[in-house]
Nucleic acid binder design. Sequence first.
DNA 1: AGCGCTCCTGGGAGCGCTCCCGAAACTACT
DNA 2: AGTAGTTTCGGGAGCGCTCCCAGGAGCGCT
Lengths: 348, 348
Amino acid sequence: MRSARINRVTTVKRLTLEEIGRLAGVSRSTVSRVVNDHPEVSPEVKRRVLATIEETGYRPNRAARSLVSSRTGLFGLVIPSRVRNVFQDPYFGRLIQGITSAANRAELTLSLFLFEDRREELDLYPRVIANGMLDGVIVTATTTADPLVDLMLQDRTPFITVGRPDYDAISHVDVSNREGAADGTRHLIEHGRSKLATITGPSNTTTGIDRRNGFLDAAADAGIEIDSRRVVEADFTESVAFEAATRLLDHPPDAIFCASDTMARGALRAIKGAGLRVPDDIAVVSFDGLVEAYETSPPLTTVAQPVRRTGEEAVRLLVDLTEGRAEPSSRIILPTELIVRRSCGCDD
Amino acid sequence: MRSARINRVTTVKRLTLEEIGRLAGVSRSTVSRVVNDHPEVSPEVKRRVLATIEETGYRPNRAARSLVSSRTGLFGLVIPSRVRNVFQDPYFGRLIQGITSAANRAELTLSLFLFEDRREELDLYPRVIANGMLDGVIVTATTTADPLVDLMLQDRTPFITVGRPDYDAISHVDVSNREGAADGTRHLIEHGRSKLATITGPSNTTTGIDRRNGFLDAAADAGIEIDSRRVVEADFTESVAFEAATRLLDHPPDAIFCASDTMARGALRAIKGAGLRVPDDIAVVSFDGLVEAYETSPPLTTVAQPVRRTGEEAVRLLVDLTEGRAEPSSRIILPTELIVRRSCGCDD
DNA sequence: AGCGCTCCTGGGAGCGCTCCCGAAACTACT
DNA sequence: AGTAGTTTCGGGAGCGCTCCCAGGAGCGCT
């Protein structure tokens, strides 16, 4: 263990522009120009100022800058309270990585807002949004009629959602949930399955709705009737999906389309628990592509979505929006891709 | 889909203290006193001011406040670049939940800093720490000789680490890794196992070191010799642990203590792949308590650590530190608890 | 009536920065 | 040499807030 030099300096005179100017023999304004890389500074002076900034380790005070520019360089990432066990599903982790990665590259700072309940969530607005603390906000996983979104709509700080929002005219980035779900379901049908079932996400989320509709689209296209008891709703968690799947097994389907990998794990567990085999008795296709092949048995066939890229695009869109480069209601839709493994009945 | 009222108001006069004062017929100062709940305001005036604040929806500008108070209400959570796949392991998710939950309660805002590489990580210091953007910082998962910690030590912004730091004199919160690991190992020994092995965390982390030492402590106490080939290092990921476990199986032990649940999953997969049974051939005990019983087969016996509480205590400690309530080098050590399931050889 | 006291309120100063305007210095012309 | 134009720099003003100090109002007391 190394011993630390704790330098609890009590009165470090905080360096200011004025002070640096004094040291370099120029004015406050000139130092400001150098710091902000304005052109009208002679090379000689610029060199001198840069040198004293270097040796003093001066950093401009952010609060003062924000006060005059009314920009903070701070962006918010909001994950609503509705999301139970955010990190149980690999989705959010991956999304956060994409977002932080893009944020780092753009040299902007990201605040994370997670909530335990609705009260905390609504408290966010007065506490950090209405007072101009954030230059922009990314809201994920909104529900239909999300009160936070309603509040944000009243405000001036730019925001986008990840996932299709309830309102039109809100900028967002999403993946082709409906088409992807249809692709996955079609694959099941091509395997000759016809007693199709699905475990959907919550019906108060657009993601849940879109993937369910994609499933229904594919079935309808193939002329397959879907009994409403074969459409069960869960909440993207493995335990609730387990229960949903168990209910499904009362009248066993020969194929299940699960709206997420995590839910597919629950379904797999339920099917095995009932003494049935995957894919022989029931074929399974899921959505996300976030679970490695070795993590389930059999390996999951899944509709992969580019989560990391979703995060990166979200940051890009938000920055474009704050700088007026993007249309107020642009949308970016990223493609999905079917990854064929074994749970669908394919050999490989 | 509801249609949105996008109110792109171009020139909203931002409300100020002065403005509110004018509306309420008092001065800027009086409004300030009301907002900050200072006592020397008459009830009648206070009521009137509060009323106009309410009806105008006024929120004090944070930048201006920060400028004079030199406090921002912003805290940072730093997860160093070393951590590959932060969210593959449930640990960080749980920790983040604990931290954000406590932060919400304390009405402080949390910024998240994740990095892809060392360069990004070191960039953090000049970009957000040295310019006083953060009131305090929580650094997790530091390695020995972490350059960021070295930088922070030079700075005045208070910081703590989660996990025992390399330096003494840095405030931190940690769990009893060494004792916990010894408990887990002792349990294996009580099952009559003597050919003990361990898969450790990285040897440049105090967590890796402490848990390995706990394992060695228990073995030594029982008079059991540990062949150095029975101590293999991994990096807390399941895939590297899989490889480490595979190496271990060249001279199969009859018990493995894994320094994390995630690594235990890798070990389980390797053992099964080799055609051996758990716990019959090899008993397994892990550390963390973050994996549900149904998630592995057999259910893992594990040394549970209170991750969520760790996060909460971290926030508490940091806040105490910034407000001068805590000693400059306090440490909080949380207890671990052995959760007995089946992988160790117990019946239930 | 005069004094001192407390209670409440208003306004000046200043936090560290950016923006703007004007002056100084220098150049290039007539 | 004088003028206009350009480049480079300094200082005032002000962002919205908090802190401090001064002063008025109201009170009870001598």
